[in-house]
């Protein structure tokens, strides 16, 4: 389709480009004002758990997409020579020292009374070792050799029947730190209830006597010093999700 404007010459062409420029600047100005106004309204408008509410909606949308496409494919493993000790990056809910002999875990299930487990309860489960990269939400990462039992084996033995729970909530004994997990991530074959670090008993500062290791999530979901495990239908509260972070944090 030939453009009639390109037939304009001389003063007619100059008048037309002046008109087009005015129009473009007007349209661009209005679009900029509307866009900037909308962004400012969203940015300085009401927050929901630490971030603007519309960002919460987008993160929830991202989560739906991630959960719909989630697969049990494995996080890469690394040679033992690369395994190191991760940095200790937060002590919320943690005790300075812990005693594995007297350690108890409160188990909460929708279909039964609460139970209290001691660590020997896990000894019957098959052990698993893996050397995976722990990824902090801050951006650093560290290859670590973890050992323990699969959470899926634990759930099969102590949890409700499959399909009876959608989420798992874990907390430190004092409830000072708590995380929520979707069932699919919790049951991923590399999600461990971990009690060794690089072949040694897990030190208290790294979450001993028992922590979670979950390579399909950022480090903040890898809760240390587990004192409570709940299988639930309700989406659990999550310490960092209440402070502006995505609830799902899936990798």
């Amino acid at each position: 389709m030939p453009d009639p404007r390109t037939h304009l010459v001389g003063p007619a062409a100059e008048a037309e480009i002046r008109r087009l420029t005015r129009r473009s600047l007007l349209v661009g100005g209005v679009a900029t004002a509307v866009g900037a106004g909308a962004l400012a309204a969203l940015r300085y408008g009401p927050d929901e758990a630490g971030i603007p509410w519309f960002l919460r909606r987008v993160l929830e949308g991202n989560e739906r997409l991630a959960r719909a496409t989630f697969s049990n494919r494995l996080a890469p493993e690394f040679p033992r020579a690369r395994a190191a000790i991760p940095r200790v990056n937060g002590r919320y809910g943690m005790a300075e020292t812990t005693d594995s002999a007297s350690w108890t875990i409160t188990l909460v299930r929708p279909d039964r009374h609460d139970a209290v487990l001691t660590l020997p309860a896990l000894y019957g489960l098959p052990r698993s070792e893996m050397i995976t990269e722990l990824k902090c939400v801050e951006g650093w990462s560290e290859v670590v050799a973890w050992g323990g039992v699969r959470f899926s084996d634990f759930a099969a033995k102590f949890g409700p029947a499959p399909g009876q729970f959608d989420y798992v909530a874990l907390a430190t004994p004092d409830g000072g730190y708590y995380v929520g997990l979707d069932a699919a991530s919790a049951l991923h074959p590399q999600t461990l209830l971990c009690d060794t670090l690089n072949g040694e008993p897990l030190p208290a500062e790294h979450g001993g006597p028992l922590r979670l290791v979950i390579p399909v999530k950022y480090g903040v979901k890898n809760i240390k010093q587990i004192g409570r495990i709940e299988f639930t239908r309700k989406r659990p509260a999550d310490y960092w999700a209440e402070r502006g972070y995505d609830w799902y944090l899936g990798l």
Binding site: I51, L55, V58, L59, V137, G244, D246
Partner: peptide, 14 residues
């Protein structure tokens, strides 16, 4: 503002 940054980044990436 790490949490804030992540939220904006994972919204505007679309």
């Amino acid at each position: 503002q790490l949490a804030q940054g992540m939220a904006w980044h994972f919204a505007f990436m679309w």
